[in-house]
Nucleic acid binder design. Sequence first.
DNA 1: AACCGTTATATCTTTAAAAAAATAACGAAC
DNA 2: GTTCGTTATTTTTTTAAAGATATAACGGTT
Lengths: 125, 125
Amino acid sequence: MHPSSVKSLLQNKTSYKVAGTLWIECEGHRFFGPGRVELLQRIEETGSINKAAKTMGMSYKKAWEMINALNTQSSKPLVITQTGGEKGGGSVITPEARQLIVYHQQLRQRFLTFLENESTQLNSI
Amino acid sequence: MHPSSVKSLLQNKTSYKVAGTLWIECEGHRFFGPGRVELLQRIEETGSINKAAKTMGMSYKKAWEMINALNTQSSKPLVITQTGGEKGGGSVITPEARQLIVYHQQLRQRFLTFLENESTQLNSI
DNA sequence: AACCGTTATATCTTTAAAAAAATAACGAAC
DNA sequence: GTTCGTTATTTTTTTAAAGATATAACGGTT
């Protein structure tokens, strides 16, 4: 069946698209997805879990739980924290975290290409 | 960066895989995904929203809301219901619904191929 | 020692989602 | 008109997630 016959089933006033999300799975549960990627990036930018969470509109608690899960599930820590210190403390991400981010970005790009290709086919006459 | 360097970051006792989900989006919100596909299939098999919901471990209410959303969002109804009748009523899916199911299955197959390809690359040495 | 902003953690409250329960209407069969 | 199992809908209850709040520890700086 050609996808165009599907399009005709839908309301023809708007355009439809194929969307989705993906992640790296470990033992059946999500290990690394878009949310954690963004959190790591913001920690790298701000040097703080607290600030990173606020810029994302996320509670500190949830952010901490996410990076705690990341650190405990991976063989090497992805975020190194310091409590106390000249500015009260702070956090930095490791080179391994940067590698994971780059990999996920490239993976995501390939996925976006896939989705755009499917969407184009779906909306073509 | 080669994906294998990412693998080494993770715990090497288990295998990781790239997983995900996709759906057809309409005006920014999900319109048709795996859950609704399965529900339509079970309605086709059982001839009843009620029975279909039970075999999926889903409440009738939620099932009804899903098929109601499907019917109101698509230009042509996907499920036709009858209240009352010789067996109390029942539901059947339309040819349009069957076409949507087939399209989604084919789309899903292409997606699975994509995921398996990525997973193989991720776990390769 | 006091101060600072952060990490770390527990607890309480609020909110949202899901589930459950209850009720009415429907229409063919008898 | 009674029975039957289903659809349709509202209401209530339960559960889970999220959010808010509170508190302590930390370690440089002053």
